[in-house]
């Protein structure tokens, strides 16, 4: 369970760092996240959903495993 919290915290930190970069700037900075029409922002969103989904399914699996043992 503790491990799960650590992973969730890490995810949150990663996400926060993306939002910090996504602030509108007067002159568009040319970095990885802003290249190619900012498609990598979409990639980050999809990855966040995917990782969240897997954490959820994984935790369900663990809970059911515990129930099966008891």
């Amino acid at each position: 369970m503790n491990n799960l919290k650590k992973i969730a915290g890490l995810m949150l930190a990663v996400l926060l760092c993306f939002t910090a970069q996504a602030q509108p700037a007067s002159s568009e900075p040319v970095d990885f996240m802003h290249s190619n029409g900012r498609i990598y922002v979409v990639m980050a969103v999809v990855l966040a959903i995917l990782i969240g989904l897997f954490i959820y399914v994984y935790s369900l699996d663990r809970k059911i495993s515990k129930l099966e043992k008891s």
């Binding site: 990598y40 990855l47 995917l50």
Partner: peptide
């Protein structure tokens, strides 16, 4: 499954 979908959602873009 997790690894394949991580690959899909990164290299897919």
């Amino acid at each position: 499954s997790f690894v394949l979908l991580l690959y899909t959602c990164t290299y897919g873009f």
